[in-house]
Amino acid sequence: MDQKQNLRACPEGIIFEVIGQEIVVISLATGTYFSLKSPASTIFALLESGCHRSDLPAKLNDLYSAPENLNVEQIESFVDQLMSESIMEYCKSNDGKGFDQGTIQSLAVPPYQTPVIDKFEDMQDLFLLDPVHPVVSTESTKKTEEHANQ
């Protein structure tokens, strides 16, 4: 674990938005999409806003009013998963502009549960498809061809 560097969403090919109380993350490189519900969404938002991973337990403790089931190892494991899925990566500097405080608080919906990533791979084929369809010459395109060849 790098204790000095911050994490942020991978700039290449990862896009995300808050929809209701979830954060949806889409990998443009693979077509995989992820749904992060509370507290996974809160952790993602905190990291994206410049919070260091070692500060996550304290921040979550505040946001969820000291939940009894807050488990540091589970948080670490979740952050590792964000990295192994290429959703987040270490960066030298994170400007902390990711999410405003109000959004982070609205994502922190109690009760606190084990953070999980819901991963969906069912649309990968569509994303990887270059829409090359069967082609048949038609009257209009034949005329075009004739005209073009004149």
Partner: peptide, 22 residues
């Protein structure tokens, strides 16, 4: 559900329209 919205609306639109994805 949000996941269905992403699957049925967002992913096809993003897949067919490259560029300016954010």
């Amino acid at each position: 559900s949000t996941a269905d919205v992403v699957k049925e609306i967002m992913i096809p639109t993003l897949a067919y329209l490259p560029g300016r994805e954010r």
